[in-house]
Design a protein around this nucleic acid. Structure first.
Length: 564
RNA sequence: UGGGGAAUAGUGUAACGGCAGCACAAAUGACUCUGGAUCAUUUAGUCAAGGUUCGAAUCCUUGUUCCCCAGCCA
């Protein structure tokens, strides 16, 4: 093993898989699985697990199963199943024929339980939930045997069968593994295998009124599917001895479990419980709110599957808890979007500009490059006329040092159009700037001066008469704190919600955007990446800001205000 | 002395007894019809203390800190 370099550069999970392949531990097979519980929407943390499991299968010539771990009818819904299937597929992964449901194995699990009971390794217990907790002991104190622990095998078999038949009310009895109430690992103190719940299951309906506990079900699901590497998160490390015990007692196929650290990201929360709360309390518009770290939210925000996949490989895999900087996610996003997004011009906060020496009623079409990063993307026409809109923040009446954009008397370039010089500032009675008057230099058509003179800034713009109105939603971090859980006394993460995480503006966009399809991604030049909202239409254009462009000017401004 | 896991720049990771490397972030400069992109440069790290060794992030000892476990949730 030491001599082998096949593991160099691999993360520790892949290193194990590579070594197992080398030693032929599984007869050349690599079978992984992504086993979500359909009780919520998938988030970026799940993407890490999805990319790990499907990625390993793809890299090592194996297969990866998508399996719903649906053993708790009270929390699971078909809606979640549907969203999970959509999200995994959207991320670009394919499970082929291997779509499974834990509930499909209920009968087999039941038979396995009977086998254990027959071996005297499981018993029906009449203790209440509260009593079970008391009998379990504590972290430092051993537990006490249940008074029902030594029932006869016949009685256990009879009672368990009657549990299944529905003869007993919810919570009245459980089937427990007979292990060791003095075990230092609490999971080994006669864990519950089945509980009685008369609830309708989203797939099995009312066929069952006893449901397997996760610890009992999960290992069996992996075993039945002949998984080779059961990759899960750190908190299940303590459960591994229990899975081992079950599988060994049963003499069943035994996958290898490998635990890795779940993903944490700055400025957001990552547990289904907390995300559910944000949805239920109306802090966001729903599971797919573009501010949510859910896959569906990120999709609606304008993230590309490639960006998310790239992020998942960049963060690596490890066994210790860490918090990844949101900036890395945004870096991966920009990296992909820069290469793939067509550029367009849009003005978020319009300031009217009149080109006083441009003939009234005249207009022309100018050529604009669709994507300077992609020659194949070609060019398009953008209309130019006497009245335009530019970005309000691209003009300053009294420009500070290093402000290169438009100012009185200053010449700048309108992208792909002309050089213009500001000649007059029009204000209303309150002194607010309402309009700018400029002159243009006809010789600079297309954006270059034949005399070779330079300008320090290039501005984006739209023609007032041709521009389309659009609602643009400017998103920012959902939370103001890097770690939202760090809240004051008596408060929790909700108190760290960013009140400015969404600002809606009425923008003017170039006419080509009339063809924008829902979820279509664009770069609004000089502003950022934007995506047509899922509900955007020709009648009402809506764009979501995915992420801003990196902005040197913002940094300069910050520097100027910090050191006056 | 309950059990289990883990510690490498600000952040995320690599190095498998042999020059502590990469990326993000930050900073500086070049270039630019996006203050974008791109390119170059810089800042910054082995939890601590001992030990083994020619040589230790890596092996050993002791300690410190952090995470997980007391659901009939997963």
């Amino acid at each position: 093993m030491q001599g082998s370099d096949s593991q160099a550069g691999l993360d520790f999970v892949r290193a194990i898989v590579a070594e197992d392949l080398e030693t032929d531990k599984w007869g050349g097979r690599v079978v992984t699985r992504f086993p979500p519980e359909p009780n919520g929407y998938l988030h970026i943390g799940h993407a890490k697990s999805i990319c790990l499991n499907f990625g390993i299968a793809a890299e090592f010539g194996g297969t990866c199963h998508l399996r719903f771990d649906d053993t708790n009818p009270e929390k699971e819904e078909q809606e979640y199943v549907n969203s999970i299937i959509e999200d995994v597929r959207w991320l670009g992964w394919d499970w082929g024929e291997h779509l499974y449901y834990g509930s499909d194995y209920f009968e087999q699990m039941y038979e396995y339980a009977v086998q254990l009971a027959k071996a005297g390794k499981a018993y029906v217990c009449d203790l209440t939930a509260e009593q079970i907790r008391e009998y379990r002991g504590t972290l430092t104190k051993r537990g006490t045997d249940s008074p029902y622990r030594n029932r006869s095998i016949e009685e256990n078999l009879d009672l368990f069968e009657r549990m299944r038949k529905g003869e007993f009310p919810d919570g009245s009895r459980t089937l427990r593994a007979k292990i060791d109430m003095g075990h230092p690992n609490l999971n080994m103190r006669d864990p519950v295998m089945y509980r009685i719940v008369h609830a309708e299951h989203h797939r099995t309906g009312d066929k069952w009124c006893i449901y397997p506990m996760y610890d009992w079900a999960h290992g069996l699901e992996d075993s039945v599917e002949k998984i080779t590497h059961s990759i899960c998160t750190l908190e299940f490390e303590n459960h591994r001895p229990l899975y081992d015990w079950f599988l060994d007692e049963l003499g069943a196929y035994h996958p290898q479990q490998i635990e890795f650290a779940r993903l944490n990201l700055t400025y957001t929360v990552m547990s289904k419980r907390k995300l559910l709360r944000l949805v239920r309390e109306g802090c966001v518009g729903g599971w797919d709110d573009p501010r949510m770290p859910t896959i569906s939210g990120m999709r609606r925000r304008g993230y590309s599957p490639a960006a998310i996949r790239q992020f998942c490989t960049r963060i690596g895999v490890n066994k210790f808890n860490s918090t990844v900087d949101m900036a890395l996610l945004e870096h991966c996003l920009r990296e992909d979007l820069n290469k793939t997004s067509p550029r367009v011009m849009a003005v978020l906060r319009p300031l009217k500009v009149v080109i006083t020496n441009y003939p009234e009623g005249q207009s022309e079409e100018l050529d604009a490059v669709n994507n300077p990063e992609d020659a194949e993307a070609g060019t398009r026409k953008v209309p130019f006329s006497r009245e335009l809109y530019i970005e309000r923040e691209d003009f300053m009446e009294e420009p500070p040092k290093k402000f290169f954009r438009l100012a009185p008397g200053r010449e700048v370039r309108l992208r792909y159009a002309y050089f213009v010089t500001c000649t007059n500032v029009v204000k209303d009675e309150a002194g607010n700037i309402t309009e700018l008057h400029c002159t243009y230099d006809p010789a600079t058509r297309g954006g270059d001066a034949p005399d070779g003179r330079k300008v320090k800034a290039t501005l984006h713009w739209v023609s007032a008469a041709h521009a389309l109105e659009a609602e643009v939603r400017l998103y920012d971090n959902l939370f103001t704190e890097e770690n939202p859980d760090e809240a004051g006394e008596g408060e929790d993460f909700v108190s760290n919600l960013n009140p400015n995480s969404l600002e809606t503006v009425s923008a003017r966009v170039e006419p080509s955007l009339a063809a924008a399809k829902p979820l279509g991604r664009y770069q609004f030049e000089r502003l950022g990446y934007f995506c047509a909202d899922a509900e955007s239409s020709k009648e009402k254009l809506i764009f979501n800001r995915t992420v801003t462009l990196r902005d040197e000017w913002v940094k300069i401004q910050k520097g100027q205000t910090h050191k006056p």
